[in-house]
Design a protein around this nucleic acid. Structure first.
Lengths: 247, 247
DNA sequence: CTGAACAATTGGTCGGACCATCTGGGCCCG
DNA sequence: CGGGCCCAGATGGTCCGACCAATTGTTCAG
């Protein structure tokens, strides 16, 4: 349990005290000397632990006054929200299609060539390939970047991160992406052509179509899965029923 | 420049050495005793700085071996992007208007009443008031939430955070928001009425107008500021010129 | 009752000391 | 000559005691 570093375990103990409510946000922690005595460690260890906690934004140390517990919300590094794959896709449909429209208005030939390469890669890989996955990401990222708006790029990148880091969402995406590779290629080509034509409206539509298809595929997939789940449960209960009547 | 805490400035100096390329990722930092002598501080200060850097994920300390620079990518986890106030506002205009459109389609009376309260608060406070500021945030947050899509809510909240945490952006927003409080109130009312009418298209337009006005105000404000800056520089150079000819 | 000076508390920094661990190189054995 | 073992030096880990500086609560003079 001890993380080798003494200050680590001390920090953990202090954090626990905070979590327990012994020291609610805004309250003052005991003095360093006091904590040192209480924990049976040196003042240096306490100090190091408090520096780590301060760096993490859990407490605030005021010279000559004491260490104060900050509002927990600041501390815990922005937990990811509870977002379903459908919500994510809907959001992406909305935002990325707008980004595509903006991009169409000002994209340059070099960027178009880059997108060509990504489409090429995706055409030559199948669903589960990591390279294809990366090309997909790059394709969307590049279009977002071509919007010329860093905030939009940031948002789209943030959503992509959600997709990768939320396990349930990731699972849905993977199962959906692995099939219908052909559709993906076609749609990406259509988006690319709309961009090449510098047609914002067409780009928006093409991007929206892409996500709409994805959303539908997800719904189908989910429905399918739920059906199987239902069948499985049914057969289970049937077995149990048969067993019970057999007794 | 010194952040009061010695270990802070020491950490900054070490970080600078890393940034400068003196210690590329994977390389070992000088020994604590050595750095202490080099910086003219005690070993404790070095140690505290390294603990802070380790907590931030910039370095890895290995007992009996040394402190190693980690790959920068891991360390700076999601640093805020370099976004201008204009970009942010453009992005918000796009995203929040879509959120408003979605919200209009399914908002309930209770939420409308909540929005009423926020508008009321904003009407009774002036630009610099914290309560008005909060009501503004709550107003937008609530509409985002009414979209029924957690991903969209998350994105809008993320953008709001950018607004609050990027100093230059914050400055622009504050200077713009403090004036034209009347316009803000009017626009928010219009948004609210469109929502109350359950008219997605009107809600989208109203929200977009709100941000368009904001964007214009920002442009004006910035232009104004740049004019002043120019005037200041001009008068400076004029002084210098006059001085030089006086010699 | 008010305000200024004081004293206790508390964090900030230092130097030195000792221990545990790791690393590299030399030594011994095969 | 080569490989594995072992030890000494280097390095981080922890502690102690001391002193400084900022803060804060108290006390006392006006």
């Amino acid at each position: 349990m001890s993380d080798q570093r003494l200050y680590h375990s001390v920090a953990a103990r202090i954090e626990k005290l905070i979590e327990d409510g012994s020291y609610p946000p805004g309250s003052r922690l005991p003095a360093e000397r006091e904590l040192a005595a209480q924990f049976g460690v040196s003042r240096v260890a306490i100090r190091e632990a408090e520096i780590a906690l301060q760096t993490l934004g859990r407490i605030r140390i005021k010279t000559g006054s004491g260490a104060y517990v900050l509002d927990g919300a600041n501390g815990k590094d922005e937990q990811l929200p509870d977002v379903s794959a459908f919500e994510l896709t809907e959001a992406r449909a909305l935002f990325e299609s707008e980004a595509a429209a903006l991009a169409a208005a000002q994209i340059d030939d070099e960027t178009l060539a880059e997108l060509d390469r990504y489409v090429e890669i995706m055409a030559n890989t199948d669903g589960h390939d990591a390279a294809g996955e990366k090309a997909d990401h790059d394709f969307h990222r590049t279009i977002a970047g071509a919007s010329g708006n860093a905030a939009i790029t940031y948002v789209i990148e943030t959503l992509w991160k959600l997709r990768d880091e939320l396990e349930p969402v990731k699972a849905v995406y993977e199962s959906v992406c692995s099939e219908d590779v052909g559709a993906r290629a076609t749609e990406h080509s259509e988006i690319l052509e709309a961009l090449r034509a510098r047609n914002p409206s067409a780009a928006r539509t093409a991007m929206r179509n892409h996500f709409t298809r994805l959303l539908k595929a997800m719904l189908d997939e989910t429905e399918q899965r739920e059906l199987e789940e239902l069948r499985r449960k049914t057969s289970q209960s049937r077995e149990r029923y048969l067993k019970s009547v057999a007794i």
